[in-house]
Simulated assay, not measured.
Amino acid sequence: MTVPLIAVAHGSRDPRAAATVRALLDAVRRARPGLPVRESYLDHAPPTPARVLSGLPEAVVLPLLLTAAYHSRVDIPRVLREVRGTRIRYGATLGPHPLLVRALERRLAEAGVAVGDPEETAATAVVLVAAGSSDRRANEVIARIARRWARERGWWAVAPAYASAAAPAPGAEVARLLAAGAPRVVVAPYLLAPGYFADRVRRETLAAGAAAVGGVLGAAPELAEVVLERYDHALATERLAVPA
Rank of each mutant, 00 (worst) to 15 (best):
residue 32 R to H: 10
residue 144 R to I: 00
residue 162 Y to C: 01
residue 16 R to E: 14
residue 136 R to V: 15
residue 153 R to S: 12
residue 33 P to I: 12
residue 77 P to L: 12
residue 185 V to Y: 00
residue 78 R to G: 11
residue 92 A to W: 08
residue 190 Y to G: 11
residue 86 T to W: 01
residue 14 D to N: 14
residue 134 S to L: 13
residue 60 V to H: 08
residue 239 R to K: 10
residue 158 V to P: 11
residue 143 A to N: 07
residue 133 S to M: 09
residue 182 A to D: 09
residue 168 P to G: 00
residue 137 R to K: 15
residue 24 L to H: 08
residue 163 A to L: 10
residue 20 T to L: 04
residue 222 E to N: 06
residue 155 W to L: 04
residue 18 A to F: 03
residue 49 P to G: 02
residue 129 V to N: 03
residue 25 L to P: 07
residue 8 V to G: 03
residue 36 P to Y: 03
residue 61 V to G: 05
residue 222 E to H: 11
residue 22 R to G: 07
residue 64 L to Y: 09
residue 184 R to N: 12
residue 39 E to T: 01
residue 183 P to A: 13
residue 192 L to H: 02
residue 200 R to Q: 14
residue 127 V to Q: 10
residue 58 E to T: 04
residue 125 A to R: 06
residue 47 P to Q: 03
residue 138 A to K: 10
residue 30 R to W: 02
residue 96 P to E: 11
residue 242 V to E: 09
residue 238 E to S: 11
residue 241 A to N: 08
residue 213 V to K: 10
residue 49 P to M: 04
residue 16 R to A: 15
residue 69 A to Q: 08
residue 155 W to M: 03
residue 171 G to Q: 00
residue 221 P to D: 05
residue 12 S to K: 05
residue 146 A to P: 14
residue 27 A to P: 03
residue 58 E to W: 04
residue 77 P to N: 12
residue 104 L to E: 13
residue 126 V to G: 12
residue 59 A to N: 02
residue 203 R to F: 01
residue 44 H to N: 10
residue 209 G to D: 07
residue 221 P to Y: 06
residue 204 E to A: 00
residue 140 E to H: 15
residue 147 R to H: 13
residue 12 S to M: 06
residue 158 V to Q: 12
residue 244 A to Q: 14
residue 113 V to P: 05
residue 177 L to T: 05
residue 171 G to C: 02
residue 242 V to N: 09
residue 55 G to N: 02
residue 18 A to K: 11
residue 164 S to H: 09
residue 117 D to M: 10
residue 219 A to C: 13
residue 17 A to C: 11
residue 178 L to H: 07
residue 87 R to H: 13
residue 223 L to F: 09
residue 52 V to M: 02
residue 238 E to K: 06
residue 76 I to D: 05
residue 60 V to W: 05
residue 109 A to V: 07
residue 24 L to N: 10
residue 43 D to R: 13
residue 211 A to M: 07
residue 105 E to S: 12
residue 54 S to P: 00
residue 74 V to M: 11
residue 147 R to I: 04
residue 231 Y to R: 04
residue 83 V to G: 03
residue 233 H to Q: 15
residue 93 T to H: 00
residue 35 L to M: 05
residue 111 A to H: 09
residue 33 P to K: 08
residue 222 E to G: 07
residue 115 V to T: 15
residue 240 L to F: 15
residue 125 A to N: 08
residue 233 H to F: 09
residue 233 H to I: 10
residue 141 V to W: 07
residue 75 D to W: 10
residue 47 P to E: 05
residue 117 D to Q: 06
residue 54 S to G: 06
residue 158 V to R: 12
residue 96 P to C: 10
residue 195 G to V: 09
